[in-house]
Write a protein that binds this DNA or RNA. Structure first.
Lengths: 378, 378
DNA sequence: GACATTAAGTTCATATAGTGAACAAAATAG
DNA sequence: CTATTTTGTTCACTATATGAACTTAATGTC
């Protein structure tokens, strides 16, 4: 509510209603002016004016008179149309960099994933610039997802431990500007855009464990931006040593390294290779692997229960390697949730697997750009 | 955001700006029209119109021409003035019922606390009706705080285990209507009104342990209203048996009963008497008590660290018996937070004791009523 | 085939906002 | 007593939504 304490004017009304109208087209597909009047509660005259503005702003387009459906003058449908311009979303991670480009209408016109190895800020900047130029399309905006602590207001990466980045100001990396946010935050935005409820918690299982929290449809960052550092909740025993130097962190028992250590300390390689190794062992029904994964589900449920008791999200979304390995630990996870969540029977929390996989964060980054356009279209 | 998807009209602008103007007077004391123009960004002409509306609505009043401060025409100050009407806030708990009445200007004109013993809904209804009539003032509105799960939209107590209430519809208890919310939620509202940051977490230590979460200045209830059930986070060992029937609940180690059991299982009586017994033992520096309280601080810190890692509140507020006993466990609590919160050094979370004591929830209930008036003054 | 019917979309008079500038009011300073 | 300064109001103007009348363009029906 950045605008909450600023005065409103008639122009504010127009902005609000323009957002309303455009949101209808975004959420429910092509509509006529008459549809929009019915669905928004605005009168036809108002709709005509707003639609004219949105067409002039290059966000809507008329598709010629639609095939007459029944009696009466046929409607002319209005569709989202931002021309060739796209929103670019990029995720920079330790051993991959993935990018998507999405048109205003939601069409994905680019999906790219390149292998990198712990890229420096400079390497990341170059890679992003190459992708942006290779698009051959104007940009509606661009945003990069980073695993770490980010200040989205200044588009600065405060600290991304796994990338070894500190105080990296990303804003100037592209001529049109570049936004930035935490990967878990953006992943939950992407999930919400694709059906997850407005109060959802997304658990990333990548190198570390983080949570993206959606409160009332908006990302919750906490008082100073550190919300979601769920991996360091002290719910494991004191003998669990975490990479952060502390003991008892949840991450120290449900992180990828902890799981690998238990199943086979010998597995090495990239993140992808490690996950693939675990999946193939599980698929081969290796008894030690299955038992470890079962335990994993219990511990995962322990922490998820803490989160659920505290926040009561409508959905808990498992991302990263949690989604890949879920088939083998979902039952013990559910059992643990049932056993430890107070409201388990009254208001069960939907448990869903991320269907977006490794593209979740980059899709969310593109969504963030689009959301900004839709939030203030004029 | 109940109004987020409804069309805006010029009247919406007026409502928004009226809220802005009234909020200035509420937060910064009596102001002149010229002050309001400067502070809100609205022009003087607009302020005059809005102020006229607010005076007509019976919310503001002119205090005759103020003593001239310097050159120029002296200003006429505008003050909050709702006449004799008050907001009534009541807290119903197991062995007390407390009430406050607050004028629009924030003046507390009634503070009452009566002993009860696990009141039935009917007993509570009668007690509240007696208080409301005894006031001899018109009501701006009334709200009751209940330790349990509440649906504030329908003003229904879904389940208050300690009171043994289930599905109690409170709305019709007073002629002018009666609102209802959870005690921890209302306590954090009261704290926020009196200086706590907009992202705060309030920990109630009464019979059970609950949390009131404030996100961006608004109470966070979760997807289905069960947010804040922090007492049942599974972070204690499996040997800790909780009153809810589960094992490992945090409440089972930091609840009042657990503390009593450890210090002296023989102490009985009301909640107040139990707390008083603990305080006097601590004041007498009884070694076993001090050690138990030190342990208590560590366990409290364990759970508080989980909360802080997940939500990163700007302030953590200790209420109920936590506030009473804090002097004897604050140090180990702080140490545990420092040891287990990832962002402890970067963005320390302010630890504050509730200064409102047992009136926190009833004050918050009155605040809720007032907040509604201020949120839509016309 | 002419005309009624139906639905989509536009036009226009009206009401309510806020803006900005001119003006009136009420005090002090010299 | 007059100039100055600050407060607050008045008024012409613009932007917005509303509601009703109107226009446009299709399908039925006689």
């Amino acid at each position: 509510m950045a605008f909450a304490d600023r005065p409103a004017t008639p122009a504010t009304v127009r902005r609000h209603n323009a957002r309303l109208v455009l949101g209808q087209v975004r959420d429910h597909g092509p509509r006529s002016r008459a549809d929009l009047a019915r669905d928004t509660g605005l009168v036809k005259a108002a709709i005509s004016g707003i639609v004219a503005d949105l067409i002039e702003a290059g966000l809507l387009a008329e598709t010629g008179p639609a095939p007459a459906g029944g009696r009466g003058r046929p409607m002319t449908l209005l569709t989202l149309d931002g021309g060739p311009a796209v929103a670019l979303g990029v995720e920079v991670n330790v051993d991959y960099l993935s990018a998507v480009a999405v048109t205003l209408g939601g069409e994905i016109v680019l999906r790219e994933r390149v292998a990198v190895h712990s890229p420096s800020p400079e390497e990341a900047r170059k890679a992003i610039a190459v992708i942006a130029e290779g698009l051959g399309r104007p940009l509606l905006g661009a945003c990069v997802a980073v695993p770490g602590l980010v200040d989205p207001d200044t588009a600065t990466v405060r600290h991304a431990p796994n990338l070894h980045w500190r105080e990296v100001e990303v804003a100037g990396w592209l001529p049109g500007g570049l936004a930035c946010d935490n990967d878990a935050n953006l992943a939950v935005v992407a999930e919400h855009r694709r059906g997850a409820p407005a109060d959802s918690a997304y658990l990333t299982g990548t190198v570390g464990i983080g949570a993206g929290l959606l409160v009332d449809g908006r990302v919750y960052r906490g008082g100073s931006g550190y919300a979601g550092e769920i991996g360091h909740m002290p719910i494991a025993g004191n003998d669990a040593r975490c990479g952060c130097g502390r003991t008892g962190c949840w991450e120290a028992v449900v992180g990828l390294e902890a799981l690998l250590r238990r199943i086979d300390p010998g597995v090495t390689g990239t993140y992808d290779e490690k996950v693939a190794a675990l999946v193939s062992r599980a698929e081969a029904a290796d008894p030690a692997t299955l038992e470890a994964l079962c335990d994993h589900g219990t511990w995962l449920g322990r922490g998820a229960a803490a989160l659920t008791n505290l926040l009561n999200p409508s959905a808990l979304i498992l991302g990263g390697f949690f989604a890949d390995l879920a088939p083998w630990f979902l039952d013990p996870l559910r059992a643990e949730l049932d056993a430890h969540v107070l409201a388990a029977d009254l208001a069960p929390c939907e448990l869903r697997l991320s269907s977006l996989g490794v593209t979740a964060a980059s899709l969310g980054a593109a969504d963030l750009v689009l959301n900004r356009v839709f939030a203030d279209p004029l």
